[in-house]
Amino acid sequence: MIRLPRSAGISAAALALGLLATAPAAGDEPTVSTPRVVAHFDLAKGESPENIALEPDGSADLTFSTARQVVNVTREGRKRLLATLPSVPDASTPVVGRAVVLGIARAQNGALYVTYATGTRATGIWRIPAGGGRPRQIALLPATGFPNGLALDERRGVFYVADSVLGTVWRVPRAGGKPTAWATGAALEPRNARPAARVGANGLRLHRDAVWVSNTNAGTLLRIPVRRDGSARPIETRASGLYALDDFGFVERRRDTALVALTGGSEVALVRPDGTHQVVLDRQSGLSNPTAVAVRGRTAYVTGAAYFTQKDPNLLLADVRQRARH
């Protein structure tokens, strides 16, 4: 998400505070600890990290939204530029007015795919060769939209893309080509009347035979089960009251426990399978407007874009531990 104003509404903030879970942690609930910032970035160069894809070696591939770059960052904080998306002089992107690179997905062969929002025919999915190189557009998405979260389902051979402005989850063949509006509806649509704050469907992940999507304006985490024929089942709301929710990552493969980035309040919350939630990381942990979370084993990766704080965009790691079940 790019620079969502806190003016999304006092009522939204009040709702979030009112619904914030205060229940004690369950005996088998994951715990998050030892947060540490491993890399700092430069706002003056447009280095606002927006999304994450993890490499087998534990390094992270990040999209720098306004710099239009994709970089690799090791767990020790070493940075390497992988690609720069082409400049678009006539960009008229909804919400932000300029070209931005947003979602990212990694294929098993190492190729990277990103969503590029420009307000022109350059809007769509772009492919970056394994190890970095020249990006190439493989799919065109509506210039009037804002393609954001991205996931690759290699088993079915398709991408899913969350469009924050058009309130749509697009499905695109992996080889590229014509997109299909796979899921639509009020649950995915933006709720704010102000054009610069209209951000609906945002983050997107595949988890347990379903496409999961966050709606930033609504503060909801949604689940869309995938039928055997690949079509979408009805949208389910699995959690609400998540103020300025951006992207998220799942902690466990067999349960619907997630860590979600609450960018407006510089917090990360643990969302339980029953939809209750509690903050587990905050500004004191080092967060600066977090935009995405990815989890690999016992490590959580969190990008902080500093869209509102305008201070210390970074990559933060934290330990995730599963308590023993009784």
Results as ranks from 00 to 15, higher is better:
P179S: 02
R253E: 12
R254L: 03
P225R: 07
G203Y: 04
I224M: 09
R255P: 06
L222C: 12
N217W: 01
L245P: 10
T237E: 11
V226Q: 04
G264W: 00
P179H: 01
G167V: 09
E267W: 01
L270K: 03
R238D: 01
A183N: 03
T168A: 12
N192L: 01
N202F: 01
K178G: 11
W170S: 08
Y243W: 13
G185T: 14
L188H: 05
A183M: 09
N215V: 07
R254D: 14
P234C: 06
R198T: 06
Q278G: 15
R208G: 07
A197T: 10
S214I: 00
L222D: 04
V271T: 07
N215K: 04
V199H: 03
L188K: 05
T220K: 13
T168D: 08
V213R: 10
P225S: 02
D274G: 00
G265A: 06
L204M: 07
A175K: 14
N215P: 08
I235K: 08
G249Y: 01
R208I: 00
A187L: 10
G264A: 02
R227H: 11
L222V: 07
G176W: 02
G249V: 02
P190G: 07
T237K: 15
G265M: 08
A193K: 15
K178H: 09
V172G: 13
R194Q: 08
G265D: 10
E236F: 00
V260Q: 12
T263S: 15
L259A: 10
G275W: 00
S214Y: 04
I224D: 07
G219V: 00
G203H: 08
G249P: 12
R227K: 14
G265I: 00
G176E: 02
T220A: 07
R233F: 02
L221S: 09
S231R: 05
A193R: 14
G177D: 11
R227P: 09
T180K: 13
L245G: 11
R174A: 15
G200T: 10
L188V: 08
S231Q: 09
G241F: 04
L188N: 08
T257V: 15
D274K: 02
R171F: 04
T220L: 01
K178F: 02
V280E: 08
V251M: 01
L245Y: 09
S214L: 01
H277V: 03
A244N: 10
